[in-house]
Every structure is written in C-alpha cells, then in structure tokens.
Nucleic acid binder design. Structure first.
Lengths: 215, 215
DNA sequence: ATTTCAATACGCTTTTTACGGTATTTTTAA
DNA sequence: TTAAAAATACCGTAAAAAGCGTATTGAAAT
C-alpha cells in the first residue's frame, strides 16, 4: 500500500485524482492539501510515501514546499504535477529533489506507472521531458550544484518592483536608496541571470515566479 | 438532460470532471476536447447545451474558441473553467460572451449549480468575481462595446518581438522597417493599452496572451 | 466619394537604461 | 578571524526608450 498525499489548489483536479485512485487498492490517498503550508502541516502526522505536488499554489508554492520537504523529510518522494512545460522549470524541480515531473494532461496509467517506478527508487517524467531528465542525471554525477539562490533577497525585491513597472528612480524612492545603488543591483541581476534588458528580465521573472520566490 | 462538452488540455482534470458528473443523471458529458479546434469540430455533430471551456489550450485558445462559438453557435452556453483570477481576464471572457466563470478550485455543487443557473438563462461566477460580473452587467446595458481588437496585427507582431527582448532597432531589422516606424508603433501600443514602459508591456502581454493572440 | 484607420516615417527633447568601471561598509560563512 | 558575499554608492558614456509632435500613403468601410 503506497500512501499518497495530493497538493493542488484546484479542487476539481483533486476530486478527479481521488476518483482515479479509487480503482486501485494498492494506492491510498491519505490526505489532500490546497497549498504548500498545508502539505508541511500534514506530512508529520500523515507520513505519506509519495506527494503529488502542484507548483502554483498560494501561501507556499511547490518549489518552496519541495525545498522544505527535502531538508526535513528527505525520504518522502515528490512528483510534480504541473502544466508548465518549460525546461528551466523541470530542471529546477529535479535539482530541488523531485523524483518525477508529469503534466496535468497525463493519463491514469502513466500516473500509476510513475508512482510505482518512483516508489521503487527511480525517476519518471512525461515523454517530452526524457531528454531533460537525461541531462539532469548526467549533470548530477558531476555533483556541481551551482544555481542555488541565484538572486539575493534585495535583488528579488528590486526585480519585483521592476516587474511592476517602476523606474530606477522610483525604486530608489521606495527603498530609500540612491538611484546608483538600484542601478548597480539591476546590473548585477542582469549579469547573474545572463540577461541584457528589462523585457527579458520581466519575462524571466514571470516565468520563474516560483523559483524566484515572487508574489 | 443537459448535454455538456468539456474542453481542457489536462486529462487528469477531464477524468475528474467525468467522474464528478457520473453521479448526475440529468447532466451528460457528450464529448471532450483537448483544444479549441476540437471544440469547433465537435459542436456541429454533438450539439451540446453547455461547454465547459478552459482558456489555456493549444491550437486555438479558449478566447479564440469562444469568439467563433458566439458567432456560429450563439445559443450554446459557455462556462469558463480557469485558474486565472485576473479581473481583465474575467471581463474579457464575459464580454466575449461567456455566461459563467469558475476557478478550477470550484467544488462539485458549485459546478452543478452554475450549469443549472446558466442553462436557465442566467449568469454564474465564483464568489470572488461577483463584483466583476456586476460591473459587466451594468456596463453591458450602456451597450458600448469598445475594446474589440485593441491592437492591430502589426502591433501584435511588434509586442511579441518586444517580449522576446528585441530593441526597436532589432525589430526594425527583422521587419524591414525604419526604427522610427517601430518607435511609432511602440508609442501607439502604449497609448492603446494605457501603459508607459516596457516592463509593464511585457507583463501585460504575458498575462493576456490569449486575448492578444500571442504564442 | 470621403472619412477612418493602419502602416509607414521623421524631428526634437528628456528620461531611463545599459555597460564599463571602482569602492566602502556590513553581513555571513568558513 | 578572516575571507567571501551582499548591500551600498559613485563616475562616465552610449544606447535606448519615452513623450511631445507631424505627415504621407494605401486600404477598408460607409
């Protein structure tokens, strides 16, 4: 019997998953959470074997939740259930310790399959992502974990203000800094993220909210 | 018997909905579609009463699909099932002719309720959106439908290139235009959308992909 | 047939960003 | 306790964007 915890803020999806799992008596959904905070609250008492984790959730998103789980409950296996088909997202989640990454358009059999394989210690991703998983597994041997917390909290604060349309002067006013300081932060952010203009920064920020800890 | 068509590219959600509706013999899911094109292909032969429509779908998104449905099958009632809680999105879909807007975190009863009310000719939205619906209903009396196709196709082309990080000079090169022309387009876009810098434009574009016809 | 709109392009000015630095202080980690 | 990283601030220049315009052409609509 594999004990499963589901975390997603969309109840229709949760209800769907409940009914999908109802036909299997070797899987049991022991609890559901609507956000990451609920996951953290529940794991201690419920001791799930596997967590099906959404990325976009209120309070504590999937990435943040995964980081906490990996440090406090490293034996729990986490499968990401997401609709984001973005290479960076998938790699980020694998690097954060997810054992699987499935799109929400997955079918029942694939879901069952993934859980079984991961419970046995393997990895499992949707077909399209196999090459990303291979890349991750190849790199993980070299054991160079680089991109941990790429941006500082001050930098994140500034990214968020840029995304909201503020100029350096406005940001300086809001944070009681010199415009020069904001300018330097902006330059450092560009350098760290390997970007060269505001449009790309905003795009990057919106596509990586979860990993940047924005919103 | 209310005949329902479900359109969503996430099969887990579709499976969930199927099972949710299985307990009701006055509702029948007569078909499912994974994208807007399938919806258009199916409505002719299947004649659904109500369509549950996702916004983010490949090939033809929910907004585009709704526009086609409203012109070719105005009697079919459309309920948006989305996870976008953004005022502009909700208003856009209502203005395009949707009769309901539910979040994917809705529960079974609310879903049944919505379908029944809408089938009887009413509107139904998730609780949080009631004020937006009221605003829409108030404005729709004045019958001034303004924001139809706000941006021209050339302007959309330029928005998309801006979002990808191109400068005016680069865009001019790509489109064989003068930098001045691109500059004018950019100014016109800002004016039409009531924005004043690139960061806000990129944010707006990414949050309104469906309505802008991007990607 | 005429108005409207989209697409094109230019002029001028100011603001903002981008990119190359350097440098001090404070915080954090080894 | 010493080195590294983060936060702060400045200097200068060039490029780009933003904010005012105006104007011509061609297509579409009325």
């Amino acid at each position: 019997m594999i004990k499963i915890l589901i975390a997603d803020d969309h109840n229709v999806l949760i209800n769907g998953l409940k009914l999908i799992f109802a036909v299997r008596d070797d899987f049991k959904i022991i609890s559901v959470a609507n956000n990451g905070q609920e996951v953290i609250d529940l794991v201690k008492s419920e001791c799930p074997d596997v967590i099906l984790l959404d990325i976009n959730m209120p309070l504590l998103n999937g990435y943040q939740t995964l980081e906490i789980l990996k440090s406090d409950y490293p034996e729990i296996k986490v499968i990401i259930l997401s609709m984001l088909n973005d290479k960076r997202n998938v790699l980020n989640m694998l690097e954060a310790g997810a054992k699987g990454y499935l799109f929400k358009d997955t079918d029942d059999k694939q879901l069952f399959n993934a859980i079984e394989m991961i419970q046995q210690g393997g990895y499992y991703v949707s077909e399209d992502l196999q090459s990303i998983l291979d890349e991750f597994l190849a790199n993980s041997k070299c054991a160079d974990k680089k991109n941990k917390q790429l941006l500082s909290s001050r930098e994140l604060e500034i990214v968020s203000l840029i995304v909201d349309g503020n100029t350096n002067a406005e940001i300086a006013d809001l944070l009681f800094l010199s415009t020069r300081t904001v300018d330097t932060h902006r330059k450092n952010i560009f350098h760290k993220l390997n970007l060269n203009n505001t449009a790309l920064l905003v795009k990057y920020a919106l596509e990586n909210k979860a990993f940047l800890g924005l919103q």
